[in-house]
Design a binder for these strands. Structure first.
Length: 763
DNA sequence: AGGTATCCTG
DNA sequence: CAGGATACCT
C-alpha cells in the first residue's frame, strides 16, 4: 500500500531538512531543540556507518592506552578546578538541548554517513561542523545519562570493564559529584554483585521511585544496601575522576604546544577547526559553515583563551587522538615527535610539520569518531534493550536521546518525526521534569525542555506501530476513513511534504482544503470557502463546504486519537503528526495515482453538482451498483472513498425515501384510508412534493413517470405491511426493500455525460 | 475480512 | 448528509 518511493522521498526530504537545521543551528545555548536533534542523529549515523571503517582504531584500545600512559606519567595537575568547573557548567547548560530531541537513524544514507575524513573532498567547515556536533552530542548524551542515573537508586559500577565508559563516567561525575555513580544502564551482565536481579530490577526501581503512588517496599532494602556500596564507589570514582582531569589538563597543554609550534599559514584550517571545535562547546557559530578556515586566522588567540573554558571531557577526546597520533608518529619518526612534544613555539620544521599536521588532523578525527562510535553503541545497546512498560514510568528516569528508541529498537525509520513534528507532538504534553537543572536552563523554552524527557516516552510508540495505529484508525472509521482524502491535493501535499516550515507545522494548511469543485457543468463552482451565500446552488455548496469541514475535523480527530497522548491543544490545528500525513499519503496513493487528473476534467472529489446529479439519478435508480455509479460519474476519479461516498449518498436518499413512504402510509392509515387502491402518488400529492423537494429542489428536472409508479408501489407496500401489523417485526421493512430494489429502471444515458446537468436542466 | 445496507445520531 | 455502529453477505 504505501508507496515506497514516496516514503523514501519523504524520508529523504526529512533528512535533508534536518541537515539544514543542523547547519543553521544558532548560537550556543539557545540552539533550538530541532537543531539539536540533528546532532545526535548524525552522531548515531556515523556511529553506525563508521563501525566498519573505524575498526582499525578501536576506541577502547586507544583510551586504555591513554589511561595507562597518563596514569604512569601523571601525579596531578594544578589548574583543574576552575577550568573544569566552568567548562562543565557550560556543558550542563548545553546538555538538555542536545538530548532534548536528539535523533538517530539507522537508515542513514551512505553519503551522509561517510566519515569526514573518509571523504577528503569534504569542505573543512563541514568537517568542523561534524566534529563539533559530534562532540556536543556526545557530551550532552553522556551528561543526560548521568543525570538520569543520578536520580535513581541503583547499581554498582562494574569494577573495571570498559575504559571509555569509565572515562565518560568519571568526567560526568564532576558534574554531579553528589550523584551516586549509578551505572544501571551500562552495567555489564557480569556485574560484581547480584547482577541478575539487580540489573533487571534497578530500572524498575528507578521508575517506581518516580511514581509517588508506587511504593517500592520490595526494593527499599536492596536500595539501602546499595547506597553504601555506592558511596564507596563514588569516592573511588571521584579519585579516578580527578586523576583523569589532571591527565586531561596535561594532554591539553601538550596538544596545544604542538600546534602553537606549527607554521600557521597552511595549518589554519586544522587549527581553526580544532579551535572551533572546542570553542563551539560554549558557542556555536553559524558563520562557520559559510566561512572557510582562512578568514578566522585571527581567532587563534581567542580560541586559545577559550581553551581554558573547556569542558575537560573534550580534552579527553583530544588527548585520545593526540596520543594515537603520537603513537603513530613515534613509529616512524621518533626524533621529530620528541621535538614536537617539547618545543613550544620553537619553529618546527615547516613542511614536515605541515604534513604532520594533516596527519594529526586525520588521526584526531578518526580517534574521535571511533571513540564516539563505541560510546554511542554502548549507550544505545544498554538503553535500547529493555522496553519500558508504561509511558508514565518511562520518561522521567532516563534522559536518553529520544529518537534512539525507535531507531535502535525496531530499526524503523523515524525520519518523519522531524524536530518540528516532535515539538508539536509533545508541545501539549505535560511532562513532569525531574531534572530541575534542565528546566531551569536559561533560554530554554519550556516545551523544548519537556521534550527532553518526553520524547523517549512518546516515540516508544514506534513508527511501525504508528502505522498500524493509523490503519486501525482508518479501518475503525470504516469505509469513510478516507473521506478527507479528496482534499489532499497531491500538489499541496507534496508542498507540505517539502517541509517548508509553515506547511509542515500545519499538515493541513488552508490550501489543502481547496476542494476541487470543478463543475461538471463546465463552469467552475468557485473557491472552497465563503462562497456559499449567493449562488443558486448555495445550499449544496455550503453543505459541501460543511462536509469538508467535517472531514477536516475528522482528520484532526484522527490525529488526536492517533497521538493518544495529549489533551487537546485548544485551537491548534497543527497537531497532526507527520506520520499521519504519511498515512494519508499512502492512502492517497492507494486510492489514486497521484494527480494525473489535476489538469484534466477528471476530479478527485465529488462536487455539489455530483450530488445533484446523484439525486436526479435516484429518480431512476434507488439501488445503483457501484459499477453503475462509476459509469455515471466517469468524471470523478474513483477510489474507495468516492465510491463509499456515492453509495452513502444513495443510501441516504433511500433512507429519506422510505421514511417519507412510511410516514405517508401511516398518515393515510390514520386518515382512515383502508384500501390500497386509494393510495396513489401523483405529482401533486403531498408525498411527491416532499420527495421532489428533496431530490429536485430547484424543480428544474422533470421527474420520470416511472418514479411515481415506484413511489406508489412503495407506499402501498408500506401501507399493506402496516395494516397487516408487520411493523411489529423489527425488520419488517426488509421485505419492502427487497421489492423496491427490483424496481430500478435504467438511468438515461445522458446521465453518463459529465455535463448532463447542463443538458438535462435546460431542455 | 471487506463491501454494503441499515439504523441512529448530529 | 456524514459518521459511526451494527449486521449481513461472501
Amino acid at each position: 500500500m504505501p508507496d515506497h518511493d514516496s516514503d523514501s522521498l519523504l524520508n529523504r526530504q526529512t533528512k535533508r531538512r534536518r541537515v539544514d537545521i543542523g547547519v543553521k543551528r544558532t548560537v550556543g545555548n539557545t540552539a533550538s531543540a530541532a537543531a539539536a536533534s540533528n546532532v545526535l542523529r548524525k552522531l548515531l549515523k556515523r556511529a553506525n556507518s563508521y563501525e566498519d571503517t573505524m575498526m582499525p582504531f578501536p576506541g577502547t584500545t586507544i583510551i586504555s592506552q591513554l589511561l595507562k600512559n597518563n596514569m604512569a606519567k601523571n601525579g596531578g595537575g594544578p589548574e583543574r578546578g576552575e577550568r573544569g568547573d566552568r567548562g562543565l557548567s557550560n556543558a550542563s547548560s548545553d546538555a538538555p538541548q542536545e538530548d532534548a530531541c536528539s535523533n538517530s537513524s539507522h537508515d542513514s544514507t551512505p553519503q551522509e554517513c561517510l566519515s569526514p575524513f573518509g571523504r577528503p573532498g569534504l569542505a573543512p567547515f563541514e568537517i568542523e561542523r561534524l566534529n563539533d556536533e559530534h562532540l556536543r552530542a556526545k557530551r550532552a548524551r553522556v551528561e543526560n545519562i548521568i543525570r538520569g542515573m543520578s536520580h535513581s537508586p541503583s547499581v554498582v559500577v562494574p569494577a573495571a570493564s570498559r575504559h571509555e565508559r569509565d572515562h565518560e563516567m568519571d568526567r560526568d561525575q564532576e558534574i554531579d559529584l553528589d550523584c551516586p555513580p549509578t551505572q544501571s544502564q551500562q552495567q555489564a551482565p557480569s556485574s560484581p554483585r547480584g547482577g541478575e536481579v539487580c540489573s533487571s530490577s534497578s530500572r524498575e526501581n528507578k521508575r517506581k521511585q518516580r511514581l509517588p503512588q508506587q511504593q517500592q517496599q520490595s526494593f527499599t532494602q536492596l536500595v539501602c544496601q546499595r547506597k553504601e556500596q555506592k558511596q564507596e564507589e563514588r569516592r573511588q570514582l571521584k579519585l579516578q575522576l580527578e586523576d583523569m582531569q589532571k591527565q586531561l589538563r596535561q594532554l591539553q597543554e601538550k596538544f596545544f604546544q604542538i600546534y602553537d609550534s606549527t607554521d600557521d599559514s597552511e595549518h589554519n584550517d586544522l587549527h581553526n577547526e580544532l579551535n572551533n571545535d572546542i570553542g563551539n562547546m560554549s558557542e556555536d557559530s553559524p558563520a562557520r559553515s559559510d566561512t572557510g578556515g582562512d578568514d578566522r586566522g585571527g581567532d587563534d588567540l581567542r580560541s586559545d583563551n577559550e581553551m581554558s573554558d573547556l569542558d575537560p571531557g573534550h580534552f579527553l577526546d583530544r588527548a585520545r587522538a593526540l596520543l594515537q597520533e603520537q603513537a603513530l608518529l613515534a613509529g616512524r619518526e621518533k626524533p621529530r615527535r620528541e621535538g614536537l612534544s617539547r618545543s613550544k613555539g620553537q619553529g618546527g620544521p615547516g613542511s614536515s610539520m605541515h604534513a604532520e599536521g594533516k596527519q594529526l588532523a586525520e588521526t584526531l578525527k578518526q580517534e574521535l569518531n571511533s571513540a564516539m562510535t563505541q560510546v554511542v553503541d554502548t549507550v544505545v545497546k544498554v538503553f535500547a534493550k529493555p522496553p519500558r512498560p508504561t509511558p508514565q514510568q518511562a520518561f522521567p528516569s532516563l534522559s536518553i536521546p529520544p529518537e534512539r528508541f525507535p531507531t535502535t529498537v525496531n530499526g524503523d525509520n523515524p525520519n518523519f518525526h522531524t524536530a518540528n513534528q516532535r515539538l508539536q507532538c509533545f508541545g501539549d504534553v505535560i511532562i513532569p521534569n525531574p531534572l530541575d537543572s534542565f528546566t531551569s536552563m536559561p533560554g530554554m523554552p519550556g516545551p523544548t525542555n519537556d521534550q527532553t524527557e518526553a520524547l523517549p516516552l512518546i516515540v516508544r510508540k514506534t513508527p511501525s506501530e504508528h502505522h498500524h495505529h493509523h490503519h486501525h484508525q482508518s479501518s475503525a472509521v470504516g469505509a469513510h476513513g478516507g473521506h478527507h482524502h479528496p482534499i489532499l491535493h497531491p500538489s499541496s501535499l507534496s508542498a507540505s511534504m517539502g517541509f517548508s516550515p509553515p506547511s509542515f507545522r500545519h499538515p493541513f494548511p488552508l490550501p489543502l482544503m481547496g476542494y476541487p469543485f470543478q463543475s461538471p457543468l463546465g463552469g467552475p463552482t468557485g473557491g472552497y470557502l465563503g462562497r456559499d451565500r449567493s449562488s443558486p446552488d448555495s445550499m449544496d455548496l455550503s453543505r459541501e463546504t460543511t462536509s469538508l469541514r467535517t472531514k477536516m475535523a475528522s482528520v484532526h480527530h484522527l490525529g488526536h486519537h492517533h497521538r493518544s497522548c495529549s489533551p487537546a491543544h485548544p485551537g491548534s490545528t497543527a497537531e497532526l503528526s507527520l506520520s499521519l500525513i504519511k498515512s494519508e499519503c499512502s492512502d492517497l496513493q492507494d486510492m489514486a495515482d497521484i494527480s494525473p487528473y489535476s489538469g484534466s476534467n477528471i476530479q478527485e472529489g465529488l462536487s455539489p453538482n455530483h450530488l445533484k446529479k446523484a439525486k436526479l439519478m435516484f429518480f431512476y435508480s434507488r439501488y445503483p451498483s457501484s459499477n453503475m455509479l462509476k459509469m455515471f460519474f466517469s468524471d470523478v476519479k474513483f477510489n474507495r472513498c468516492i465510491t463509499s461516498q456515492l453509495i452513502k449518498w444513495f443510501s441516504n436518499f433511500r433512507e429519506f425515501y422510505y421514511i417519507q413512504m412510511e410516514k405517508f402510509a401511516r398518515q393515510s392509515i390514520n386518515d382512515g384510508i383502508t384500501g390500497v387502491e386509494e393510495m396513489g402518488v401523483s405529482r401533486d400529492s403531498e408525498l411527491f412534493r416532499a420527495l421532489n423537494m428533496h431530490y429536485n429542489k430547484a424543480n428544474d428536472f422533470e421527474v420520470p413517470e416511472r418514479f411515481l409508479e415506484v413511489a406508489e408501489i412503495t407506499l402501498r407496500e408500506f401501507f399493506n405491511a402496516i395494516v397487516a401489523g408487520k411493523d411489529v417485526d423489527p425488520s419488517w421493512k426488509k421485505a419492502i426493500y427487497k421489492v423496491i430494489c427490483k424496481l430500478d429502471s435504467e438511468v438515461p444515458e445522458i446521465f453518463k455525460s459529465p455535463n448532463c446537468l447542463q443538458e438535462l436542466l435546460h431542455e
